[in-house]
Design a protein around this nucleic acid. Sequence first.
DNA 1: CTGTTAGCGCGTTCAT
DNA 2: ATGAACGCGCTAACAG
Lengths: 338, 338
Amino acid sequence: MQSGALPTIHDVAARAGVSKSVVSRALAGAYGVAPATTARVKRAAIDLGYVANANARGMSAHRTHTLGVFVRDASTPFYGHLLTAFQLQAAARGYRVVTATGAGSFPIAEERRALETLVSLRVEGLIVCSGALPVEDVLPFARRIPTVVAGRPERDDAVSSVYCDERGGGRGLADHVADLGHERVAVLTVSPSGSLTQSARTDAMVRRLRSRGVDVARIRSEDHGADPRDLDSFVDRVVSLGGVTAIMAPSDHWAVGVLEAMRRRGLSAPGDFSVTGYDAVAPFATELFGITSWRQPLGVIGALSVDDVVDQIDGRSSGATHTAIDGELVVGRTAARR
Amino acid sequence: MQSGALPTIHDVAARAGVSKSVVSRALAGAYGVAPATTARVKRAAIDLGYVANANARGMSAHRTHTLGVFVRDASTPFYGHLLTAFQLQAAARGYRVVTATGAGSFPIAEERRALETLVSLRVEGLIVCSGALPVEDVLPFARRIPTVVAGRPERDDAVSSVYCDERGGGRGLADHVADLGHERVAVLTVSPSGSLTQSARTDAMVRRLRSRGVDVARIRSEDHGADPRDLDSFVDRVVSLGGVTAIMAPSDHWAVGVLEAMRRRGLSAPGDFSVTGYDAVAPFATELFGITSWRQPLGVIGALSVDDVVDQIDGRSSGATHTAIDGELVVGRTAARR
DNA sequence: CTGTTAGCGCGTTCAT
DNA sequence: ATGAACGCGCTAACAG
């Protein structure tokens, strides 16, 4: 038993000695089907290992109960946690999730194609999380399918967005560094095309530091290879600047790169330089690693994103909304009083 | 333009002034369609923002070109990297990937349901990665759909498996520790029901250490709360044992827990105890973290898994295969000569 | 080269 | 309470 091709509703009907219609109803809610028949049908379905074809069902029902999620790179804990949060909340709301993922440096064109794949699957809602994909590429789909951009602020009223307040976070971290007494700080930045969110938060850091009278050296990662794993020349640059006592990175990932490069130079944090990151997702946020950072509540962002699309699908929502979530300072051991 | 419901092949046909069949062929490969017509059809499709319904296509074509991947918990870098590897190789082989994932402690029953979801989507192949789901729960599906269990060895000839040689890895790490001169070692173990792979590797560690004359204290995590984040009582136990100079953990994740608990006790590695992990996936494998570990080549495992299922689907493979991949020692800074 | 027809597996009227 | 018939969007024969 139970081998070969997958059985169809027809096979179940034959085995139970009824018509397909009865099987459909018996397995659905059993309204208007004799109890005995229902039992017989269910038994037949189990014997055959019947699993209804969701695609066929979706066609006639015009509903797939599926959400499409696009994440830039599932291999990083940041997106991984988000993914898990989506899955959890979607299940709670009665939806399935299909995921399209890139790998690291995903060309924008590929990301667009990935979105099309999701649409071809006739997902009922779209959740996009990519620090890089321009909103223009999302809009064509957003006009047809309820869409929310997660983890990044948007303004367009065709798409919803749920995100952590980047500027607020950047300011919060900057205040912390300023409070620690640092008077000359190097801020490592990335280009907006690299990551909208990261550049927004570093912008905020620079601005807040300056408004507090701190001397800021803004250093672009593009000038130093733009590779978080090879920041040696960046560190050299900071050292040569002289007088810098703290380094602020656009993310924990970059901060780790900075710390490693420092380590190769025989420098350590916070002894030689105080270092801050951003995201505070495990395992960086662990006590052991101890990076001073700013935590984004990924579980909340994920849940609210799902709620937003589902509400749009159910027509319970008027239109696109933009929700900012507050993060919180995570005091680690890589930044200290000057 | 381009808003409202998604257009169907019918809409495109109407706009191009041809029949649906022509549209289908023109968009597919354009065999036997006048160049002028093809152009007209393509233009109409673009104007309408047409994206073919993959579900409907799958029904008539009896092919979905979709692989179903189940990962236990996408939020960990280990599974995240695997996921990325699958996606990459699947794309190269012309397949799409839909992912079902749980979150952390996923009840086995839920995992079974997740597999059913994948089957209901009529995926053509199944890739299962879960250290916990028993093979018995996979078998019913494996008999009908080409299946490969990734990251864990199997014996059954109904499913393929691609995995890293756990015993070899356990032995390799044990040899490293023994070579470093440790004569009394504590090995933290997990139950097979918790993780088949982790228990296999720690078993191998214990055996190899003993065969080399090392005094081994085998300590079960279940006796200490079984939570990687709270290993204080475990560390206390190791300390009270006396004479132990090294601790071997079942994974980097556990090792981090051990290191943190040590830290809370004012102990450090390798000064007080040498500590080893397992997996060596970023960011633990980074220079900064420096955990001495054993690396599993996740990219290779992912690619070979996809190749295996796809070959089975294409009928290019005779049957289930079991492929063991060798890992490699990652020398970090948490383990040192005694 | 193009239009017509027949399903794919399922849910849903509508009769019976 | 049950069955027959139709259609979802698409591809694959089959005619023209």
